[in-house]
């Protein structure tokens, strides 16, 4: 029996399942009790999960493929507008929305991927920034697709299949479900030849070429994957808030997502989740209880900014490394206690 438990706890998804159950529990507490979990907390966790999805894509791009992008937030926005338009105009199940957005993401991701083969490093950052600026211009310029500066409101909640119409509370489970599926997908990518090819490419392009790895293919693929993740996050954003406005996907969101990935310190979903929850949930749940942060909603960005600098200057590896080192220390202490020896 204990052996069985041990085996289960070693399964790579074990931690994620526990997390998912915990998050389900939180929402159930919110829905069926009076005030143990507040609306703010429920909303904050839903938003953190949405940002986690976008950040996981960025994590694949940065952590696996060694590329970088400053356009994540703009792609979240694009996904949101496409979803809003589909949800308003057509009565289609949720997966059709995802499918449509994915197709657009593949096209855009491919374009940036091809561009990325011609320009490197700093050039690429500036190019992605320019790309994001173009999209932001599209968002705020008055037109029917984005609704201009005031955005789109009154988007209906999505429906799952034929009968299941979601509402303000149940859309949380949709977000959680999509996040969980994408966690599994991310793990599969990391452990696949594709993931290793991207790693090889980020380590050295000469090495990758010599090993028969087509660098163009994997650069394009990395951008396509991260764009899909970002745009799916946008779909969920609109699904849960029922509105889309251009202020939601500014450059600061891109930077915060970047900070979350850097703070997490790894392309693995565990790292990205730690980073995102540390940056977004902490801000939305904890800091908002202080009057100072209520009056100055932007103040929490100081932490994201400072964390980026500290991690690059003093602690490469971020939270992932921190947790690993803590675990080593605990194992050492436990072993030391068992053998009755002192720590020194």
């Amino acid at each position: 029996m204990t052996n069985n438990l041990k085996q289960i706890s070693k399964h790579p998804l074990f931690g994620y399942v526990i997390l998912a159950l915990g998050l389900i529990g939180l929402q159930l507490l919110f829905m069926f009790t009076d005030g143990i979990v507040t609306l703010t907390v429920s909303r904050a966790i839903a938003m953190s999960m949405i940002y986690t999805i976008a950040a996981m894509g960025l994590g694949i791009l940065m952590g696996l493929a060694g590329l970088a992008s400053l356009g994540t937030a703009a792609f979240v926005g694009l996904g949101a507008y496409i979803a809003a338009n589909i949800l308003i105009s057509f009565h289609v199940p949720f997966f059709v929305v995802i499918l449509a957005v994915t197709i657009v993401a593949i096209v855009i991701g491919s374009i940036i991927g091809f561009i990325s083969l011609r320009v490197r490093g700093l050039h690429l950052l500036v190019i992605t920034l320019a790309f994001a600026t173009i999209l932001n211009e599209l968002f705020i310029t008055p037109n029917n697709f984005t609704g201009g500066p005031s955005g789109i409101t009154n988007v209906p909640f999505p429906e799952l299949g034929m009968f299941l119409q979601l509402d303000r509370e149940t859309v949380y489970f949709l977000i959680l479900g999509v996040m969980f599926l994408l966690i599994m997908l991310t793990l599969n990518i990391i452990n696949s030849p594709t993931g290793r090819a991207m790693l090889a490419m980020s380590s050295s392009e000469s090495l990758a070429k010599a090993m028969g790895i087509n660098v163009l293919k994997y650069r394009v693929l990395a951008f396509v994957i991260s764009t899909i993740y970002a745009m799916i996050a946008g779909v969920l954003f609109v699904s849960s808030l029922t509105a889309a406005s251009p202020a939601s996907w500014n450059f600061m969101l891109s930077l915060n997502l970047l900070a979350a990935v850097i703070l997490g310190g790894s392309a693995k979903p565990s790292g990205v989740i730690m980073g995102c929850f540390a940056i977004f949930t902490l801000d939305l749940v904890v800091l908002r209880n202080f009057a100072f942060f209520v009056q100055n909603p932007s103040a929490s960005m100081v932490f994201s900014g400072a964390l980026i600098i500290i991690i690059y200057a003093k602690f490469p590896g971020g939270l992932t490394k921190l947790v690993q080192e803590a675990r080593h220390l605990i194992i050492k202490i436990v072993k030391g206690a068992k053998h009755g020896t002192s720590l020194e």
Partner: peptide
């Protein structure tokens, strides 16, 4: 895993197989 990178050309599964494992 470094050796598996060397084995890259001996994987024939498409992305579909890789992503869904």
């Amino acid at each position: 895993e470094n050796l598996l990178i060397g084995g890259h050309i001996y994987y024939n599964s498409g992305l579909f197989h890789q992503f869904l494992r």
